[in-house]
C-alpha cells in the first residue's frame, strides 16, 4: 500500500510516488513550523518576552523558504508528470495550501513585532481573548495537518466550521478592547497594537478555513462553499 495518501495504489512510475512523498513531507514540515510559530505567539503574548518575540519574527524565514521549495517542486512535477484526477487536484491544492500557510506564518511573525506595544500595560480581558483565538487557531492547524494526511472530507468540513469559534472570540475581543479604550484613552499605542494582533489572529482563522476547503477539494473534487447568510 502506498504510504503517500490513504486508499491510493502506487503509481506504475515509482519516482512519481517519491516526488509526491517529498511534496507531502515539505507541506507537513511547513505546517508543523507554522504550528510552532503559533505556539510561540501564545507564549509571547503571555510573557511579553522581547527575545522570544525576536525568535518568533525570525522563524518566518524558513517557512518562506519551504514555500519556495514546494512551488519549485510543483512546477517540476507538473512539467514532468502532467498529473490527472486525484494527483492533479492534490498538486494544485498543495500549491494553494502552502500559500495559506505562508500567510499564517506572516501573521504569527507580525504578532512578534506588535507585542512590544503591550509592554507594561495590563489588558487582561482582551489579552485573554487573544490567547483564546490563538489556541483555537493552533488546535485547528494541528487537526488540519492530520486531516491533510488522511484526507478525511468529513473532518475537513468540521474544521472548516471551526472558524466561527475564532470569529466569536474576535467579536468578544473587540468588545473588550473597545471598553478598555474608552476607559484608558491615553493608551493609544497599546490599544492599536492589541487590535492589530487580534486582527492577525482573525485573518489566520480565515486562512485555516481555506486550507480545510483545499483538503475537501483534494478528497472529493468538489468545492466547499459557504452559503450566503
Amino acid at each position: 500500500m502506498n504510504q503517500e495518501y490513504p486508499m491510493k495504489k502506487e503509481h506504475t512510475v515509482k519516482s512519481f510516488d517519491e516526488e509526491l512523498q517529498l511534496l507531502k513531507s515539505l507541506v507537513v514540515d511547513m505546517a508543523g513550523r507554522c504550528e510552532e510559530q503559533l505556539n510561540l505567539a501564545v507564549e509571547v503574548i503571555d510573557s511579553r518576552d522581547a527575545a522570544l518575540a525576536k525568535t518568533l519574527v525570525s522563524g518566518d524565514e524558513r517557512i518562506n523558504e519551504l514555500q519556495n521549495e514546494v512551488d519549485s517542486l510543483v512546477v517540476k512535477i507538473l512539467a514532468k508528470r502532467q498529473p490527472m484526477a486525484f494527483d492533479l487536484r492534490m498538486i494544485i491544492s498543495v500549491l494553494k495550501i502552502v500559500a495559506e500557510l505562508e500567510r499564517i506564518a506572516d501573521y504569527a511573525a507580525g504578532m512578534g513585532k506588535l507585542v512590544r506595544y503591550l509592554d507594561g500595560v495590563s489588558l487582561d480581558d482582551p489579552v485573554t481573548s487573544l490567547k483564546k483565538m490563538a489556541r483555537i487557531s493552533l488546535s485547528m492547524l494541528s487537526d488540519l495537518i492530520a486531516c491533510y494526511q488522511t484526507l478525511d472530507s468529513e473532518k475537513a468540513v468540521v474544521l472548516w466550521n471551526r472558524d466561527d469559534e475564532i470569529d466569536a472570540a474576535y467579536q468578544t475581543f473587540l468588545n473588550q478592547l473597545q471598553l478598555f479604550m474608552s476607559r484608558s484613552p491615553d493608551l493609544v499605542e497599546a490599544s492599536t497594537g492589541t487590535l492589530f494582533m487580534g486582527r492577525n489572529l482573525e485573518r489566520i482563522g480565515d486562512h485555516l478555513t481555506n486550507i480545510a476547503e483545499n483538503i475537501f477539494f483534494i478528497a472529493t473534487g468538489e468545492n466547499l462553499l459557504k452559503p450566503a447568510r
Binding site: P83, M84, R89
Partner: peptide
Amino acid sequence: IFTNPKHQLTEDYITGRFG
C-alpha cells in the same frame, strides 16, 4: 473524467496507478 472521475478503475488508469 480527467479531474474527478467517479470510477476507481478510471482514476487508477488516468493517474498511472494501473496494473
